[in-house]
Design a protein around this nucleic acid. Structure first.
Length: 982
RNA sequence: GCAGGAGUGGCGGAAUUGGCAGACGCGCUGGUCUUAGGAGCCAGUACCGAAAGGUGUAGGGGUUCGAGUCCCCUCUCCUGCACCA
């Protein structure tokens, strides 16, 4: 009869809850305890409940937390619910329920499941992002963003009030493009009057202009941008919610259309978000993902004049066009004045300027209408319409041939005054750089392909430092400049500098930095999200709701369905909508915040979750932050983790938090895949196929669900795979084959768990069948935390056996009257040494998150205990303590049965004695020419000569060295002996 | 294409300042106890070989007394990004 995990686990879960065992102490109560903040990525409480991936995540941090409590640390280990979001809302609409009701039910289920796993959260700190007491502060932080701007000189956020102050004092002035810059007079320069580009003083602006300048600087601002509008769902969608031009939920078509939206100025933080990665202990791959996402590249912006003599009939008449372009994120303002027709390009290779033989504008570029020759208008317009109708995916498909059309206009290359034609083409993206390029076909493969197709000249201006120039493709690496008058012979690095220097004297170029990152589209036309704390006047100007009026609660709508138009559902809340302030009528902002909002700062709220006066108490924030270990899935590598860092930095700049980064150490747990599947491949019919012909094995969706298919190379036919049980499969030298018919090849692989595949492991079922402790152990034992690994239910039984054996050794089995013998005797020397080794190893392994080997050590020690006729009490005690972080329920029960009355949660981790680790003798392998031929056992303090002598005489060694010249005798201390013979 | 990670028995995986490859678990084989066992216990389990011995960490080459580990080349798989100028 195995131990009754059902009863024991329930008992201890109730005990922990009732006694608030895992409460973190506030700094004032913590004396001089060292703190540790151990955080999970808190769950979105979906309808399908806890996933084994959650269990992996939360078990890992639970082990760390429990271990650190035993180490005497004050541990903050909280959880909560990231509960706003589209799935709940969709479900509610479909089932005619309120999302709040559905969300509450899901939270309850998640809480039950998490508690059933024995997670040691401090439940007094539970957070729900949909609770007005929480989102009050989400709104408050939004107002911090709204009321701040990014000071480019100090590279940090400051209050808008400070900006106004500086403008009024004329330390800052307003540039023609609306940017705020240092007053040149203050810099000791004179303002040049009559220049179109002159900066203006604050007092020279009208009130409306002043407002425009201020609003244009806010970190939270409104702008007209193209968004993913999904008429079927009646909402905009984030890019990640759009798959192949259709909504991920429901599969409705998604179109790009410009809408006035709230944006957050994350681009201002691009550099700091990259630089500060260096101070973080995060996986290198994840840092790289963030760097790539931000996509910083350095180079130059260069201005090309348009040759107006070549624009016969070009007019400023507007084209009818579907989508309006987004303002260029590039640092150089657009040339607006009519007499100043310039194309600004960004390039990372200014050294190839002599090789620029044409230019390309993105089809959406506003200059296109102004420069297109009358003779080209029709083709240009037709092309622009084709592009506008294409989905993002069609447009960026990599197999696509280059397309484009000429505008008939020409530009002047500023370095050599050459006239070059201007095209539009969809391979130039409006959203990146300035939306225009100088095309250098000799040194950019894309330009090369385009030039070939349109018969444009290809001029090599860089040669490789060694070797030949290619003939049939672009030469992209750096090299030595050629055919480039001013820079001939210069290596690429110097050539770049010189070109920029020369051109910048004329004002035609400057060094610049470009980013892929765009400002964060922060509003959604949904009901189930945080309302913006914003009032709009009749002109559409935004005003912050007074802090004293927070939270702006989500109105309790009966009809919260999308309107079918871009008008958000909140516009139906007529009473809520209208607000009067100081005799003026305002309308509330009816967009809501995206799901990311709540998770951008939840880790701060955990420090002080009940505070009604502040989002987090100063002292508590200083004590707990930063998060010491943060564990979660890699799916949040760029979105959540970038957004949260951004918010944190804004709060840091404004003095609200004390650290520049929120998460010091971050670990991604590896994905748990479904069980290994075997698929046998054959043609339809019974013809076995020569399996060597099978290639490109993959999944394919059919009417009957997902199935495996493979291409048969020579015939280009398809073979389908049928799933077979593993006992029908054998491994051969050349992959897996069917036992019954070795002709048939079997493909073995694991897939992501999914309902449609039917390979989802359910924590509820597993806990019922094996218990929480066994499940925790199994998931941690599967392999290293960070690694992707396949599920295998069959293996869990190993952990069940282990726990049963521990139970037999330490608690006995009362029903079979085999009560374990716990004796108050000293621990026998051999097992004592192993116990000390285990104490050391398990601690090290938990600290380095190698839970799999920690468990292996405990299994080994228990296997040794099996052999003892009776278990010494100290050994039993230490074993229970070591097991506690990993399998807490059984450990508490054993601890109690060993005579302790209090939970072991804060009992000190057992100590090991270094002296006990050393052995008096050691066994050394003896190698001859690097091969092990024998073993010797010698005293641990034996000297080298004695060891070598013993080794030479060892059994099994003699025959390999007898009669041979020993060239070398190696003794690697405490490792081995090696004889090198001729 | 670019970037990052990985490749070790039938399966999951151990072993890293270079030093006994396969810890530990699953599975499997034999034995034992049992009315029975999805329980327990004992023994075995990388491959070839009767044995002696030989061969083995995706493949090839190199450094070294000694390489899963370090260096070079190649292959495969995973993950992310992808016309980013």
């Amino acid at each position: 009869m195995p131990y009754n995990f059902m009863t024991i686990e329930k008992k201890w879960q109730e005990y922990w809850l009732a006694n608030k065992t895992f409460r973190a102490l506030d700094p004032r109560d913590a004396a001089n305890m060292k703190k540790s903040y151990v955080l999970d990525m808190f769950p979105y409480p979906s309808g399908s409940g806890l996933h084994v991936g959650h269990v992996e995540n939360y078990t890992a941090t639970d082990i760390i937390s429990r271990y650190q409590r035993m180490r005497g640390l004050n541990v903050l280990h909280p959880t909560g619910w990231d509960a706003f979001g589209l799935p709940a809302e969709q479900y509610a609409i479909k089932n005619n329920r309120h999302p709040r009701e559905f969300t509450a039910k899901n939270i309850e289920n998640f809480r039950r499941q998490i508690q059933m796993m024995g997670m040691s959260y401090d439940w007094d700190r539970e957070i729900d992002t949909t609770d007005p007491r929480y989102y009050k502060w989400t709104q408050w932080i939004f107002l911090q963003l709204f009321n701040s701007y990014f000071d480019r000189i100090d590279a940090k956020a400051k209050p808008i009030a400070h900006l106004v102050h500086e403008l009024m004092n004329e330390n800052l002035v307003v540039a023609p493009d609306g940017e705020v810059v240092l007053n040149p007079v203050q810099e000791g320069m004179e303002r040049i009057s009559g220049d179109v580009r002159v900066e203006r003083l604050w007092r020279e602006l009208s009130p409306d202009e002043q407002r425009g300048v201020i609003d244009g600087q806010r970190l939270a601002y409104m702008d007209e941008v193209p968004v993913n509008w999904c008429p079927g769902l009646g909402t905009v969608l984030a890019n990640e919610e759009v798959v192949d031009g259709r909504s991920e939920v429901g599969g409705f078509p998604v179109e790009r259309r410009p809408m006035r939206q709230w944006m957050l100025r994350i681009t201002a933080y691009a550099d700091r978000l990259i630089e500060d990665l260096d101070m973080l202990d995060w996986p290198e791959s994840l840092k790289e993902m963030q760097r790539n996402w931000i996509g910083r590249s350095t180079g130059a912006t260069i201005e090309f004049e348009i040759d107006e003599a070549t624009m016969p009939g070009a007019s400023s008449q507007r084209f009818a066009q579907g989508s309006e372009p987004q303002a260029a994120p590039g640092p150089v303002g657009e040339a607006e004045a009519d007499d100043d027709l310039l194309i600004t390009v960004f390039t990372t290779r200014p050294d190839t300027l002599y090789g620029a033989t044409y230019m390309v504008l993105a089809p959406e570029h506003p200059l296109v209408e102004r420069i297109t020759a009358a003779t080209h208008r029709e083709t240009i317009e037709a092309y622009r319409q084709v592009v506008a109708s294409q989905s993002e995916r069609d447009r960026t498909s990599d197999t696509k041939e280059k397309t484009g059309v000429a505008t008939g206009a020409h530009a002047i290359n500023p370095i050599n005054d050459e006239r070059i034609p201007i095209y539009i083409a969809d391979y130039v993206l409006w959203g990146y750089g300035t939306g225009a390029i100088m095309a250098v076909p000799a040194h950019d493969q894309r330009d090369f392909d385009f030039a070939k197709k349109f018969n444009l000249p290809i001029r090599y201006v860089v040669r490789p430092a060694a070797g030949e120039l290619p003939q049939d493709r672009a030469f992209e690496p750096e090299g030595i400049a050629i055919n480039s008058e001013l820079i001939d012979g210069l290596p690429t690095g110097e050539a770049k500098q010189k070109i920029i220097d020369v051109l910048s004297r004329e004002g035609n170029a400057r060094r610049s930095v470009n980013y892929k990152l765009r400002d964060w589209l922060f509003s959604r036309q949904r009901y189930w999200g945080e309302p913006f704390p914003i009032l709009l006047d009749e002109a559409g100007n935004a005003y912050a709701v007074d802090e004293s009026e927070l939270p702006v609660t989500l109105p309790d709508l009966v009809d919260f369905k999308p309107t079918g138009t871009p008008e958000p559902p909140l516009s139906k809340a007529k009473d809520w909508l209208r607000v009067e302030r100081d005799g003026k009528v305002f309308t509330r902002e009816t967009n809501t915040m995206p799901q990311w909002a709540g998770s951008c700062w939840y880790y701060l709220r955990f420090c002080d979750p009940m505070n009604e006066k502040r989002f987090v108490d100063v002292e508590k924030e200083q004590y707990w932050m930063p998060v010491d270990v943060y564990v979660g899935g890699v799916e949040h590598a760029v979105l959540h983790l970038l957004y949260a860092r951004f918010w944190h930095k804004v709060l840091y700049d404004l003095g609200h938090v004390s650290t520049p980064e929120p998460f010091l150490r971050l670990v991604n747990q590896g994905l748990i895949l479904g069980e290994l599947e075997f698929h046998a491949f054959q043609f339809s019919g019974d013809h076995a196929i020569s399996t060597a012909l099978l290639t490109d094995i993959r999944e394919e969706a059919t009417d009957h669900g997902v199935q495996m298919v493979a291409t048969v190379t020579e015939t280009r036919a398809k073979a389908t795979g049928r799933r077979v049980p593993d006992d029908q499969v054998e491994k051969t030298s050349d992959g897996y084959r069917l036992k019954s018919n070795p002709q048939i090849r079997v493909d073995a692989r694991s897939f992501k768990m999914s309902k449609s595949r039917g390979n989802v492991a359910s924590p509820d079922d597993l806990v019922r069948d094996y218990g929480a402790d066994a499940l925790r152990l199994y998931i941690m034992y599967m392999g290293p935390l960070e690694m992707q690994k396949p599920w295998n239910t069959r293996d869990i039984v190993g952990m069940t056996r282990f726990l049963n054996a521990v139970w037999r050794n330490l608690a006995g089995d009362e029903e079979n009257n085999k009560v374990a013998q716990i004796v108050d005797e000293p621990i026998p020397q051999a097992i004592d040494r192993q116990m000390h080794r285990t104490i050391k190893k398990v601690a090290e392994d938990i600290e380095t998150l190698r839970f799999n080997t920690a468990i292996a050590e405990l299994i080994k020690l228990n296997n040794e205990m099996n052999k003892l006729p009776a278990i010494p009490r100290d050994l039993a005690t230490n074993f229970a303590l070591m097991l506690a972080p990993l399998a807490p329920h059984i450990a508490e029960e054993l601890w109690q049965r060993l005579g302790n009355t209090e939970s072991l949660t804060r009992h000190p981790w057992p100590r090991y004695d270094d002296a006990k680790l050393v052995e008096s003798t050691m066994e050394l392998p003896v190698q001859v020419n690097g091969k092990v031929r024998g073993k010797i056992t010698v005293a641990a303090d034996a000297d080298q000569d004695a060891i070598l002598t013993a080794a030479a005489e060892a059994k099994g060694v003699q025959q390999w060295i007898n009669g041979k010249e020993i060239k070398k005798r190696l003794y690697v201390p405490k490792k081995l002996v090696n004889f090198v013979v001729a």
